[in-house]
Amino acid sequence: MSRCHLLLNRASGGNQRGIDAKGVCRTVEAVFREGGHEMTSTLVPPGKIEQELKRVISTNPDTVIIGGGDGTVSTAAGLLGGTGIAMGVLPMGTFNLAARDLGVPLDIAEAARFLAEAQAFPIDVLDVSGHACLCTTILGFYPEFSNIFEKRDHGGHWWKKTIKLLAGLRSTFMQARPLHLSWESDGGNGKARTKFSAFVPGRYKDTAGLIPARTDFVSGNLTAYVGTHRSPASALRGILEYTLGLHEKNPELTLVKATKMTLRDSRRSHCKAMLDGEILKLAFPIELRILPGHLKVLTSAATLFPEQETEEKT
């Protein structure tokens, strides 16, 4: 029997859309107890996630289930990484990138059943100047634009935010100041004028889809995607190519695979970044390094190792 604890962020996007937080706690507790686990839960008010998580970690549970958006999950990953305590992700946010990446169903009851039966596997974490990144860190026009509508529409549906992004792409892209990035890495050095760059642990899947999805969770590498698009039309074309799974063939996208990377800007001392859905102000130089197997997560072997699953079936 494993000892588990659920921490649910009261201010998550799911709560803003009317999901009953207390009802979620009851559902998760019931499912885990039916599966033979000990389960307790805490509803955490805004701004208290770190404090409460540190308290829970001090009790040395086997697993902590995090109910919240990607920002909450990233915060938890930073604290749980290296402890040996497994983290489960309960999708309570807007995009729920981490949950999607780890194969967790988006329906709460189904997610609870999945997590109660899942195994704990170690995965890589991307350290971004001391911040834990599970999904993606984005520099350029997107953090600027997202900061505006997130303040206004926190907790909205992901597809509504995607439509707003596309509708405002032209004006936002044109107004955004470019970054004059240079990078040094063990995968090569370079420089570019860019209005969009993304850095992920592992890499993006080269399959069709609107929402970014990662693979190579235990590769020991990070991948940098540095866009050199000069116009809204070319940026829109890049988005279209991504949705079709053709982004790695885009001539206006430079890909760098590395284990560590240093970013500098010849004209700025800092910039805004979106790290797993949260807007941060990062100072240059920005240091990125992959932390192999740093965090244990609840998922399935089929999600982490799809190639092995395919080989077994054939």
Rank of each mutant, 00 (worst) to 15 (best):
M274V: 05
I49N: 06
A302M: 10
E309W: 02
L53F: 02
S219H: 11
P46W: 05
K313S: 08
P45D: 12
A198E: 04
R10A: 15
Q308S: 14
L236A: 15
R193G: 06
K249P: 01
R170V: 12
L169Q: 03
I290P: 04
M1G: 04
D127P: 03
N189I: 05
G293T: 02
K313M: 14
G68A: 05
F149W: 14
I286N: 02
L79E: 00
L80D: 00
C135M: 08
R100A: 13
R289Q: 14
G227H: 06
H247M: 04
V256A: 13
G238H: 09
T259R: 08
S266C: 09
E252A: 09
P251A: 09
V256M: 14
S182M: 08
E150V: 08
T136Q: 10
A21M: 12
W158N: 01
E252W: 08
G202N: 02
A224W: 03
G93P: 04
V24T: 12
L80V: 04
T228G: 11
L102Y: 00
S219E: 10
G68P: 00
P306D: 12
F173P: 02
F217L: 07
A208V: 01
G155K: 01
R113N: 10
G71E: 00
P91S: 08
V31N: 05
K164D: 12
K22I: 14
G168I: 02
T72A: 02
S197P: 02
